[in-house]
C-alpha cells in the first residue's frame, strides 16, 4: 500500500510566501519566487544525504479534510507509489516549469506566489535519501 509522507494538510509553511529568502546548498540566497529547477538540482548534487527524485503526478483526488487533496506520485526509477494529502494551495516545483499547485488562484491569493495548475503527468522535484537507493 502507498505510504503517507509530509507535508501535513494542516497549514502551509511560511517559506512559500513571496519574498521568503531561501539558502541554496552553496550558500547563495534567492527569493522563493526566483528559484529555478537548476537550483534544486545543483543543491542536491552538493548534498551528501539527499538526492533529487522525479515524482510524476499519477492521480489527484479529493482529500478527507476541507480544502485538501490527495496526490498520488510515482517516485524515482523504482516508480514507487506514494500518496500525500496536502492543502489545495500547496505548491510543488515542477521540472522546467516552476511552482504549481492544485489551486493556483488560492496559492497566489494567500502567498502572492505565482503558480501554474498542477496536473496529472507533471513531474515534480522531490527528495529521497541517497542511502535508499
Amino acid at each position: 500500500p502507498p505510504v503517507s509522507s509530509p507535508p501535513s494538510p494542516v497549514a502551509l509553511p511560511p517559506f512559500f510566501m513571496r519574498g521568503s529568502i531561501i539558502q541554496l546548498a552553496d550558500g547563495e540566497l534567492k527569493r522563493v519566487e526566483d528559484l529555478k529547477t537548476e537550483d534544486f538540482i545543483q543543491s542536491a548534487e552538493i548534498s551528501n544525504e539527499l538526492k533529487i527524485d522525479s515524482s510524476t503526478v499519477e492521480r489527484i483526488d479529493t482529500g478527507q479534510s476541507p480544502n485538501a487533496v490527495v496526490i498520488q506520485f510515482s517516485v524515482g526509477e523504482l516508480k514507487a507509489q506514494v500518496c500525500v494529502e496536502v492543502l489545495v494551495e500547496y505548491p510543488f516545483f515542477v521540472f522546467g516549469q516552476g511552482w504549481s499547485s492544485c489551486c493556483p488562484d488560492r496559492t497566489t491569493q494567500l502567498f502572492e506566489l505565482s503558480c501554474a495548475k498542477l496536473c496529472v503527468g507533471d513531474v515534480c522535484v522531490s527528495l529521497t535519501l541517497r542511502s535508499l537507493k
Partner: peptide, 25 residues
Amino acid sequence: NVEPRSVPVFPWHSLVPFLAPTQSD
C-alpha cells in the same frame, strides 16, 4: 542605534517534499 531586523532564511530542502519510496521488489 537600531539593530537590523533579522530576516528568516530557509534551507532549500524545506521547499521540496521528502518522498521516501517504499522498497518495491
